[in-house]
Computed example of a mutant assay.
Amino acid sequence: MHDADRFNSIAQERLQAWRRSLVDSGRRMPLFDPADGGAGARLLILLETPGPGDAGDRQVSRDNQTGTARNLTRFLDEAAIARRDTILWNTVPWIVHEPGARNRPLRRGEIREGLATLPDFLALLPRLCVAVLAGRVAGEAAPVLADCCPRVAVLTMPHPSPTIVCTSPEIARTIRNTLMQAAGLLNDARL
């Protein structure tokens, strides 16, 4: 095994251990998408919280069968952002909804708890150079990123949920422009 492969393997294990620590504290947590960049990601897309449903083998993934995932996939593809460069996660990373319950707004305490988990999570992403905060709740993570990762460029955009994207053509345009800007920053970071 090459040194880079060994480093990537150890970094992935640490990321999974961090997630398991939240599960061990009684949280219902989706998995990281193994098709994404994981600990080697250069771009974080921070969403709000997993939707209703059971954790099971569920992942935070652009491959999920939801309108949000389909929209995000389309916008990331349009921006030509390589999947291996990304990691998707949520500001409140655990499932807050009771099994069988409908989607509900997050409570202030849940948002505070979720924000408190971010420093340890961000420390596990050594290659991170851009973070895109998607939606109002994710936007509250900007001070955490500024504190923990002052060299990381932080961009904000509307949440890619169909209920938000469909409200105005300007929403889709803003998301598209933000992800194009993120792609440019990723390209500049390679130079």
Score class of each variant (00 low, 15 high):
Val96Ala: 04
Ala153Arg: 11
Cys148Ile: 14
Trp89Met: 03
Arg136Met: 09
Leu15His: 06
Ile111Pro: 01
Arg14Trp: 08
Ala131Leu: 03
Val130Arg: 03
Asp36Met: 13
Glu110Cys: 05
Pro158Cys: 09
Asn8Gly: 08
Arg6Lys: 10
Arg58Trp: 04
Leu186Ala: 02
Arg19Ile: 05
Ile45Gln: 05
Thr66Gln: 07
Leu72Asn: 03
Gln59Ile: 13
Asp3Cys: 10
Ile81Pro: 00
Ile171Asn: 12
Leu76Gly: 00
Leu185Cys: 11
Ala134Gly: 13
Leu88Tyr: 05
Val23Gly: 08
Ser168Gly: 10
Cys148Ser: 15
Phe75Val: 11
Leu46Pro: 01
Val92Cys: 03
Val144Asn: 01
Phe121Ser: 02
Pro126Ile: 09
Arg19Thr: 04
Leu186Lys: 00
Thr49Leu: 03
His159Cys: 01
Gln12Leu: 05
Cys129Ile: 02
Ser161Glu: 03
Leu115Arg: 05
His97Ser: 09
Asn103Lys: 13
Asn64Gln: 15
Asp54Phe: 05
Leu191Asn: 14
Thr49Tyr: 01
Glu170Ile: 10
Cys148Arg: 10
Ala123Val: 06
Ser61Met: 10
Thr156Cys: 11
His159Ser: 03
Ala17Trp: 14
Leu46Glu: 03
Glu48Ser: 13
Leu124Arg: 14
Gly67Gln: 03
Ala131Asn: 05
Arg58His: 11
Trp89Tyr: 15
Gly26Ala: 09
Glu98Cys: 09
Thr174Gln: 14
Pro105Met: 07
Ser61Gln: 10
Glu48Pro: 00
Thr66Val: 03
Glu78His: 13
Asp5Val: 15
Arg112Glu: 14
Ile95Cys: 14
Glu98Tyr: 11
Val130Asn: 04
Ile95Ala: 09
Arg70Gly: 08
Gln65Leu: 12
His2Ile: 05
Ser21Ile: 00
Leu185Tyr: 12
Ile171Thr: 14
Leu44Ala: 08
Pro99Arg: 06
Arg20Gly: 07
Thr49Trp: 04
Arg28Cys: 07
Pro52Asn: 06
Asn187Val: 02
Asp120Thr: 10
Gly40His: 04
Met180Tyr: 12
Arg27Ile: 00
Pro158Tyr: 11
Gln12Ser: 12
Val152Cys: 11
Gln181Phe: 03
Ala182His: 01
Asp54His: 08
Glu170Gln: 15
Phe32Gly: 01
Arg19Gln: 12
Asp57Trp: 08
Thr68Trp: 06
Pro162Leu: 05
Arg127Gln: 15
Gly38Pro: 01
Gly114Glu: 02
Phe32Lys: 00
Gly37Met: 01
Cys149Glu: 09
Pro160Val: 05
Ser21Asp: 09
Cys148Thr: 15
Ala146Val: 08
Pro158Asn: 13
Gly40Thr: 11
Pro105Thr: 07
Val92Ser: 01
Ala123Gly: 15
Leu122Trp: 02
Thr66Glu: 10
Arg58Thr: 06
Asn103Ile: 09
Val96Leu: 01
Arg83Asn: 10
Cys148Leu: 11
Val165Gln: 03
Ala17Asp: 13
Trp94Asn: 06
Val96His: 00
Leu44Lys: 02
Gly67Phe: 02
Arg20Glu: 15
Val23Cys: 13
Arg104Tyr: 07
Arg70Pro: 06
Pro158Asp: 14
Ala138Arg: 03
